[in-house]
Design a protein around this nucleic acid. Structure first.
Lengths: 192, 192
DNA sequence: CTGAGATTTCAGAAATTTCTGAAACATCCA
DNA sequence: TGGATGTTTCAGAAATTTCTGAAATCTCAG
């Protein structure tokens, strides 16, 4: 019996360690959902992170009480994000999954992906929007030129902002993680 | 006629400036929704930002084709976030709303609020979770001590991460905005 | 006070997101 | 090759979020 992964971390055992894990999973899931990540996906990540050891799909299903489909999709997303990796156990055909344990690597992966998915497309759109009112076609134009100029200034402001964020993110991602923590401290500490 | 705010920016006029505004609103709304902000709230903000001038609730309703209730709630949220301010027109009992036009102030306000709402509570929970397995109660404990130690190390890692993010955010928020852009550049540019 | 205009609130409706479960698919071994 | 085990997919169901519209509340001028 005890089929899934024969993994002692797979089931909550009612002790205080398990209670703490459960609370962590809930907290992380809650946070994820306020940042636009599906609650379950964040919970799966939290579970893999906090148990520390590889778990198979059935372990995750059982522990979080979710369906196979949901577990499969969530895990695949986490793998796509690069914060969970597939592993195997010898003599076991099942796939096991393991969360990145270094929080700085985690941060880098998250920043990398969110930039790619959510910042770069916005920047591209902003450039397109600016081109929409580029400059020619000034015959019978309805809006006075000053309005267009002010509009351009606003778009440029946003472009500045997004581009700066992107550059900061890039820096964060490129930096080897030993230096990352140092940079973080440097930014966080000196006043200005 | 032309009741609402007698505001020429209130209605799309079919020219290319309006087209560009519309695209901007859509882009911003899309981005907001992927970052856990309601699409409409982000759209209202985008509209107020890109038109630059104060608009009343009816203007917003008409321009975005949304209900009074929705407009009212969205605007109030933006005011609560501190990125939209109430203004008045003399001889007009209606309230008008205006978006912060400086993108660095905008960034500061957003960071300030997200930290308060989404980061600080998480940090508080993480501390609580750590205390859950503090150390006494070592009689008939189910889990071996090494497991608890490893668990603590993981929680501490997350606390480190979240605390660093919080400190970085605080710095960003405290910094006068002239220095902010400079800091952003400094982080973005030098390699390391 | 009174009432016209402006704003807020919130119960239910609509839209969107997320989840389930079973079928299709893949892989490995005998 | 057949079938046992494991994984993915996806149409519909369920849950959650967001929106509407009308009633309640507020505000101010007369």
């Amino acid at each position: 019996m005890d089929s899934p992964g024969d993994n002692p971390s797979a089931r909550p055992t009612g002790d205080r360690l398990s209670a703490a894990q459960e609370r962590f999973v809930a907290t992380w899931g809650q946070m994820g959902s306020t940042w636009g990540i599906s609650r379950t996906m964040a919970e799966v990540h939290a579970l893999l992170y906090i148990t520390g050891e590889p778990m198979c799909t059935d372990d995750v299903m059982e522990r979080l009480a979710i369906s196979r489909g949901n577990a499969s999709m969530s895990i695949r997303s986490l793998v796509d994000w690069g914060i969970v990796t597939r592993t195997h156990k010898r003599g076991d055909r099942k796939e096991y999954f393991q969360a990145e344990q270094d929080v700085w690597s985690l941060l880098q992966a998250i920043v990398r992906e969110r930039m790619k998915r959510e910042l770069q497309p916005v920047l591209a759109s902003l450039y397109e929007i600016r081109d929409l009112t580029a400059s020619p076609e000034r015959s019978g134009e309805v809006q006075p030129e000053v309005k267009t100029a002010a509009h351009h200034a606003r778009i440029d402001g946003m472009i500045d902002l997004v581009r700066t964020l992107e550059q900061m993110g890039e820096k964060l991602v490129e930096l080897p993680k030993e230096q990352l923590q140092a940079l973080a401290q440097q930014i966080a500490e000196p006043l200005g």
